[in-house]
């Protein structure tokens, strides 16, 4: 038996909105640790790892580890039927072939049950080793989204370079080139407006903007995004989910032939 009650149901709605276009179907894993997911896009260029820790749920019952295969557009469609202030409860029976999403309005005057069919998904679970990154950039998530959107009007790829000058996002396309440099700016009034760059050594990597733009759909989940870069490793774009966990996107770099 599985029963997970999330007071801030909008978090789950936002999570689904941020991954449904990147990943078609995925297994959601539930254990004592929490509710998690690891999935790649169909071309195996990007990977998403989600963790919502059990402590973040108002009620968390998971009698045995369970893996539930879901088509993400269908799950997103059902969650769209929940109000932004609704409490969402995920329920499933051991060995069952359905999952139920229950939506409760804040004053309990409306309770809805949506039952969705589960599917069997053969997914490959990848081991993500702990890595030392050459550079870690923390910046406002809205600023990062804006940069990715602006650059994708010019080109298809972004070169992210971190030097002691700051972090530079560059692209080029048929009509011209664009460079956006963000300097460390830790002395702002609000901590969420700060740009903080931890650089062990300079690093420069090239990525497909299409994927970066897709990751920025997680912007409503967090004010700050953390971008971890190391040569020869996928970039990690992380959005922390308030008190609960994270959504991390890994993107394989483009490699010079």
């Amino acid at each position: 038996m599985l029963e997970l009650r999330l007071l801030q149901g909008s978090l789950l709605k936002k999570v689904l909105e941020s991954i449904k276009d990147l990943v078609t179907e995925a297994n959601f894993d539930c254990s004592a640790t929490g509710f998690s997911l690891q999935a790649m896009d169909s071309s195996h260029v990007a990977l998403v790892a989600l963790l919502l820790r059990s402590e973040g749920f108002e009620h968390f019952r998971c009698d045995r580890n369970i893996s539930m295969g879901m088509k993400l557009v269908n799950m997103a469609m059902m969650l769209k039927c929940a109000g932004n202030d609704d409490i969402i409860t995920i329920k499933a029976d051991d060995g069952g072939d359905t999952v139920t999403f229950m939506f409760e309005s804040p004053n309990q005057d409306k309770i809805a049950d949506f039952e969705m069919k589960l599917m069997n998904i053969d997914s490959e679970h990848l081991g993500i080793p702990e890595a030392e990154y050459q550079a870690i950039v923390r910046m406002p998530s809205s600023e990062f989204a804006r940069i990715c959107k602006d650059l994708s009007t010019i080109g298809d790829t972004v070169i992210i370079s971190v030097t002691k000058e700051g972090v530079k996002f560059s692209t080029k396309g048929d009509i011209g080139t664009a460079n956006i440099v963000c300097r460390q700016n830790a002395t702002v009034d609000k901590p969420e407006d700060a740009i903080i760059i931890e650089m062990k050594e300079p690093v420069s990597l090239t990525f497909a903007l299409r994927y970066m733009n897709s990751f920025t759909k997680a912007t409503p989940l967090a004010n700050i995004v953390t971008i971890s870069l190391s040569s020869e490793l996928p970039v990690v774009v992380e959005y922390k989910i308030a008190e609960m966990g994270y959504i991390r996107f890994y993107l394989a770099p483009k490699i010079e032939e």
Partner: peptide, 14 residues
């Protein structure tokens, strides 16, 4: 042109 890398060449199946 640069070639797109693949996640599975960085992270191994467990």
């Amino acid at each position: 042109d640069a070639k797109q890398g693949n996640i599975m060449s960085f992270f191994k199946k467990v």
